[in-house]
Measured scan of single mutants.
Amino acid sequence: MSIQHFRVALIPFFAAFCLPVFAHPETLVKVKDAEDQLGARVGYIELDLNSGKILESFRPEERFPMMSTFKVLLCGAVLSRVDAGQEQLGRRIHYSQNDLVEYSPVTEKHLTDGMTVRELCSAAITMSDNTAANLLLTTIGGPKELTAFLHNMGDHVTRLDRWEPELNEAIPNDERDTTMPAAMATTLRKLLTGELLTLASRQQLIDWMEADKVAGPLLRSALPAGWFIADKSGAGERGSRGIIAALGPDGKPSRIVVIYTTGSQATMDERNRQIAEIGASLIKHW
């Protein structure tokens, strides 16, 4: 067993022997301040990774656009098919120029040779490549099948209805392509620590998230040296922004954090800054 596999296998073990965790309302004060600064709703939840206990939450059962955070769930569904012998990570998928959609920095470079399922998941999570996500959605049967996968996990809230990039439209009061912070946090925890996926697939999923290259201005910008984070960000229309993450000190994750916002007129930089400040408060009061 590799060191990384050992780390993920012992996530519940280490967490069980940690000192009790206590909620700190100071972080919620910052979440509410972010709402004021952005002029928009902000949803927040913080779960203990081992027990699933909610440590703090704000608007945990209000719907927010998922945006690209759905790509972690998508690759979880792909990995479940791999575990069941219905898919192979090494299978190569070929596609054409007509398949390319807006923001496809990886797939646009491989029109000639195609990409493997493993490479597509890596591109979808680490670079948020939209064509990679659409190609992977095709392998599982489309958005409705991802929703069905989530329902089978016990998540009857999260739903995907459309493809990239239309799913980022974020129309107010439109339930399409949305989740709730509580539902997303619980589902992410199941994917990373539950028995739904094999140990190898859980490790692969967290490795992809740990290698995320496009979430630097968010929670990662607030992390002290030595902290662990595996995350996936999302951005959408109407001032929408979000991030889902597993993080913790001492090089291992111990909490799940989900943050979503929508309806702001603020710039992307300002949305990023507010999420980073929430992260800084979380870490300060850990």
Rank of each mutant, 00 (worst) to 15 (best):
T116M: 06
T187F: 06
L282I: 13
E62K: 06
F70M: 14
R159G: 04
E270L: 10
A211Y: 09
V101A: 10
T179D: 00
A246E: 06
G251P: 08
P165G: 06
H151S: 09
F149E: 07
E175K: 12
R92V: 14
R255S: 03
G263V: 04
R91W: 04
R159S: 08
D33R: 15
T187W: 04
D33C: 14
E210I: 14
T27W: 02
I125L: 12
R241T: 05
L19N: 15
S221F: 09
H24W: 09
I229V: 10
H5N: 14
A9V: 10
E26R: 08
G85W: 06
L205Y: 02
G236C: 03
P224E: 06
L191E: 03
A200G: 14
S264T: 12
L146V: 11
S221I: 10
S96L: 11
C18W: 12
Y103M: 06
A246W: 06
Y95A: 03
S128L: 00
I229S: 03
G234K: 00
I93A: 04
G90E: 15
S80H: 14
K252N: 12
D36E: 13
T179V: 02
G263D: 06
K53H: 13
A235C: 04
P20K: 14
D177A: 02
M115I: 07
A182P: 06
R63M: 07
L197E: 04
L79N: 02
A230G: 12
G251L: 09
V31W: 02
V106F: 07
S2L: 15
E277L: 12
L219N: 03
P60N: 10
S201E: 02
H24G: 14
F228V: 07
A34N: 03
F149W: 14
R255K: 12
D99R: 07
L74P: 01
Y103N: 06
S68F: 00
T116L: 08
D129G: 00
Q265Y: 12
S80P: 01
E119T: 06
P105A: 05
S281F: 15
E175G: 10
C75W: 00
L188I: 13
D250C: 12
A40K: 03
M127K: 09
W286P: 03
S221T: 13
A9F: 12
T187R: 01
G154V: 04
M268A: 09
M268P: 07
M268G: 07
D207W: 12
R255M: 05
T126I: 09
K53D: 09
V82P: 01
R176Q: 14
G251N: 15
A123D: 02
L89D: 05
R59L: 03
T131W: 02
I256V: 14
N134K: 04
Y260I: 09
K144I: 13
L188Y: 08
L205A: 03
L49P: 05
P181Q: 00
R81S: 09
Q203G: 12
V72L: 05
Y260C: 04
E175V: 15
Q37V: 15
G43M: 00
M268V: 09
I278Q: 00
V42P: 00
M209I: 02
G114R: 03
P143V: 07
N173P: 07
A84C: 11
A235E: 03
Y44E: 01
L73D: 04
D177G: 03
A77M: 11
P165D: 06
Y260L: 10
G263I: 04
R7K: 10
I259C: 07
G141A: 06
R255L: 05
T138S: 15
H151N: 15
Q88P: 05
I11L: 08
A276C: 12
S240M: 03
H94D: 11
T147D: 09
G251T: 09
D36G: 15
D155E: 05
L223F: 05
G43N: 00
G141S: 07
A77D: 09
L282F: 08
D212H: 04
T187G: 08
L160Y: 02
L74G: 02
A133R: 00
S233C: 02
T262L: 07
W163I: 10
Q86L: 13
A230M: 07
R7T: 15
L28S: 08
G226E: 10
A15C: 15
S264A: 08
A211M: 10
R273T: 12
L74I: 07
G242D: 00
G114C: 04
K71R: 01
Q97T: 13
T193L: 11
M268H: 09
L74V: 11
R255H: 05
A123H: 03
I206R: 12
L192G: 03
S57P: 02
L19G: 14
E237L: 13
F58Y: 15
C121Q: 02
E210P: 00
K284P: 03
M180S: 15
M153A: 14
S240I: 01
E145D: 11
A124V: 08
S57Y: 11
Y260E: 00
F64W: 03
T262D: 09
H94L: 13
F228C: 07
N50G: 14
L196S: 15
P12R: 05
A15M: 15
L219Q: 04
T139Y: 07
E46C: 07
V82H: 09
D231A: 06
E35D: 05
I259F: 07
Y103K: 02
K30H: 08
V21A: 14
N98I: 13
S281M: 11
T179G: 01
G39V: 10
G239I: 00
R271Y: 03
V31Q: 01
S201R: 06
R92N: 09
T158H: 01
L150V: 13
R92G: 06
L191Q: 04
E35P: 01
S51K: 09
L219R: 03
K284H: 09
V257F: 04
N173S: 13
E46A: 10
T187A: 09
T116A: 07
D113Q: 13
Q203H: 15
F64R: 01
S57G: 11
I259A: 03
